[in-house]
Design a protein around this nucleic acid. Structure first.
Length: 715
DNA sequence: CTAACGTATGTGAACGTCAG
DNA sequence: CTGACGTTCACATACGTTAG
């Protein structure tokens, strides 16, 4: 990520990290709560409000920020499904076919005591025994605990053959071995039926004393067995385990306890803010637990996968409180509507919440880990930079004065970085080529149907490289931004006062300001393949440039985005548009004074022989070619629109972009800038599978060495 | 319990339509 | 030409369901 994004992104992520540290609830995209949905329906169908008005009212009255697209989508979905809740999701692909499941049902109906393993062998199914076990639970004759109880009238599971081998429950087995009774009982349903007469562990709808809690913790055992209990309908059946274990890292199912930690009104608000009971449960979780209490924990404290770090149980009392609240605030009808399923009852409610809680903790941990990783990486980078700076400062300065006389020599220490170095020497080319190659190899599918991307019309000598241009564009944009970052003088030229203030506020703001500034300049002129319309002279010039700097793909890309207009094309328009992402600096310089132009011409003389600094080469070439050009600052909208519609843009889009630019000028964020900035990153990460990649890379880089070390130690 | 999986959903940009 | 407003598209994220 850092290698792609470099400084800008590092800064941004550093800030993100801070956010994570503070809240650990990173929310990038909110979802419409049930309350918001009901409000929308009411406003739409009872008050006949328009979508845009609904958006305004929600924001004004309820402080709910929602886009009009979201309202539109929701209303459409509501009319289609007649439900405010999400449509059901399919989840992971089933391995068992319907026929196989039916077969399993038949087999278990005929032989109630057959094991999942036996079914697997009998039906020759190539799936986990757990999958088969789940399939058996789909049938009435297998799934209810009551039925089993009715059959025998007592816990009969001790020697039940209806057991599934527990390859993941070693920890539990060892725990069970500590108790006298449980070591004889491995069945999932055992614990719910043990020792009903034990009153000590019965549910208590009141806060527990410390003593009681200690007792409860001591009694915690064999938690896995609690998963399938019917605790809702049969409170008296709450399993009670009399065994005492001092180091319980598994807990039984959670008793519902009203701790009165949160006021009813606040809970109602929380519910309104939640789109599901699971969401409600996780919101409460983060409200009543500290982050330190959550990380490294899960609901039960079990870690079934041996490869993962063992976890500790969350405070069972507060978990019980969450359970109590969830079941109190969501009735069975709501559960059915929300959980989608004929079998979805309140009994399944806590199960879903249980899973959601664990998952939310995992996600929180992951985000924190990524943030920590990035922060560490940045630290090490800074150290490297310092060292590199000491070693190369003289050389750099020499190169710098030599290469960019027009840009000034002094630069901020903070902004001075290895990226800058790479931009000035041969590493630059390697970096770019690597990145381009990376995108190329991965065949990032990002072109889609952009009307402006008429690569087929581009010049013939570029056609075979158009693939890389897709990304070279973005790469150059990023690098351009980075160059601004490492050259404060230029950045200052770009910045509006407001933006400067932002810079002082944070490095992220600095990045944003620079990006916005870069985009502002770029925006005026971005017109892929504009050379089609260019004059012959300029076209030839560009061809020459391309040949001279062919090794650099980004150069070609930038050339594509230059809009050069001859004077005869706009006779009444004394100005020419000469802007490229790279050239913005030149343009700006020339705007300011002729001296700047002279400098760039000097650059051209110097740098034509300098293979290291292609940027300067290109700039100089262009400066020579366009030395008669002047810059259009305030081209009438109409003319801009006319030109851009010629390139395939829709008129409204051009107006929209112009609006964006104006907003940007007024100090508001130019969203387009953000979008383009992250485009490259998207292209990169799209190739991987989101969060799992991070974890995989983390494991590879950080955990594998630890595992190796661990194995060597023999511990 | 957690990873894998895949759909649902929110959002920015683009676009279409209407009206002044 | 332009504002207002709604929809579509592509993308990223949220999140429920299933496998192991």
């Amino acid at each position: 990520f850092i290698s792609c994004a470099r400084k800008v992104k590092v800064n941004c992520l550093q800030n993100k990290f801070n956010k994570v540290k503070l809240s650990c609830v990173a929310k990038t995209m909110g979802r419409l709560s049930a309350y918001a949905k009901n409000r929308i329906l009411k406003l739409r169908f009872k008050k006949n409000k328009r979508i845009i008005h609904i958006v305004e009212i929600l924001k004004r009255d309820d402080n709910i920020k929602v886009s009009r697209q979201a309202v539109s989508t929701f209303l459409k979905k509501y009319l289609e499904t007649n439900s405010i809740y999400d449509k059901p999701r399919t989840g992971r692909k089933r391995k068992l076919t319907h026929e196989e499941i039916q077969l399993i049902g038949q087999v278990t109906r005929l032989n109630r005591d057959i094991t999942a393993r036996a079914i697997k062998e009998y039906l020759n199914l190539n799936v986990s025994t757990y999958t088969i076990l789940r399939a058996t639970k789909l049938f009435e004759w297998n799934k209810s605990n009551e039925a089993k109880l009715d059959e025998n009238g007592s816990p009969r599971q001790k020697g039940s053959p209806n057991r599934v081998p527990r390859k993941y429950t070693k920890r539990k087995s060892t725990q069970v071995a500590e108790s006298d009774e449980l070591n004889q009982s491995n069945d999932l349903n055992d614990l719910s039926l043990l020792n009903d007469e034990d009153e000590i562990e019965k549910i208590q709808i009141k806060p527990l004393t410390n003593q009681e809690m200690n007792k409860k913790m001591a009694a915690a055992a064999a938690a896995a067995s609690g998963l399938n209990l019917n605790e809702d309908s049969q409170d008296s059946k709450f399993h009670t385990i009399t065994k005492t274990r001092h180091n319980a890292n598994s807990i039984p199912d959670f008793e519902k306890v009203d701790l009165n930690l949160i006021e009813h009104r606040e809970l109602l608000i929380l519910k309104n803010l939640s789109c599901s009971p699971m969401s409600f449960a996780t919101k409460i979780l983060f409200k009543i637990f500290k982050i330190e209490e959550l990380h490294g924990h899960n609901v039960s404290g079990k870690t079934l996968n041996k490869n993962l770090k063992a976890k500790l149980p969350l405070d069972p009392i507060r978990i019980g409180y969450i359970k109590f609240l969830v079941e109190k605030y969501y009735d069975e009808k709501e559960c059915r509507e929300m959980l989608h399923g004929a079998t979805s009852t309140k009994q399944d409610l806590w199960k879903s919440c249980h899973t959601a809680i664990n998952k939310s903790i995992l996600i929180s941990e992951r985000k924190a880990a990524v943030a920590v990783q990035l922060a560490e990486k940045k630290k090490s980078e800074e150290i490297e930079k310092k060292e590199a700076k000491e070693n190369k400062s003289e050389e750099k300065k020499r190169k710098r004065t030599y290469a960019s006389s027009s840009e000034g020599d002094d630069f901020d220490d903070m902004l001075e970085s290895e990226e800058y170095e790479s931009g000035d020497n041969a590493n630059d080319e390697e970096d770019d080529d690597d990145e381009i190659e990376m995108f190329k190899n991965k065949k990032v599918n990002r072109k889609k149907n952009r009307p402006k991307a008429k690569k087929s019309n581009s010049q013939s000598d570029e056609s075979n490289e158009s693939d890389t241009d897709e990304y070279a564009n973005e790469i150059e944009l990023i690098q351009n931004i980075e160059n601004r970052l490492v050259n404060p003088k230029e950045a200052e030229e770009l910045k509006t006062p407001e933006i400067e203030q932002e810079k002082e506020e944070s490095s992220e703001a600095l990045a944003a300001a620079n990006i916005a500034a870069a985009m502002k300049k770029r925006f005026v002129v971005v017109a892929p393949n504009s050379e089609i319309k260019e004059s012959e002279v300029s076209d030839q010039d560009k061809r020459e440039e391309k040949k001279s700097v062919r090794v650099s793909k980004k150069n070609k890309k930038s050339e594509e985005e230059i809009e050069v207009k001859s004077e005869k094309e706009v006779p009444d328009e004394p100005n020419l548009v000469v802007v490229s992402k790279r050239n913005t600096r030149n343009s700006r310089a020339r705007k300011e004074s002729d001296r700047e132009e002279e400098k760039s011409e000097k650059d051209s003389e110097k740098k034509n022989s300098d293979s290291n600094d292609r940027i300067q080469t290109r700039r100089s070439t262009r400066a020579t070619a366009l030395n008669k050009s002047t810059i259009v600052q305030n081209l009438p909208k109409a003319k801009v629109v006319r030109r851009f519609t010629g390139f395939g843009y829709k008129k409204r889009s051009v107006y929209c972009w112009l609006d964006v630019r104006e907003k940007d000028r007024n100090g508001r964020p130019a969203k387009i800038a953000t979008k383009l900035m992250v485009a490259k990153l998207r292209a990169y990460f799209n190739q991987k599978s989101g969060q799992h990649v991070y974890l995989g890379e983390c494991i590879k880089k950080r955990l594998e060495p630890m595992i190796k070390e661990y194995n060597q130690d023999g511990n």
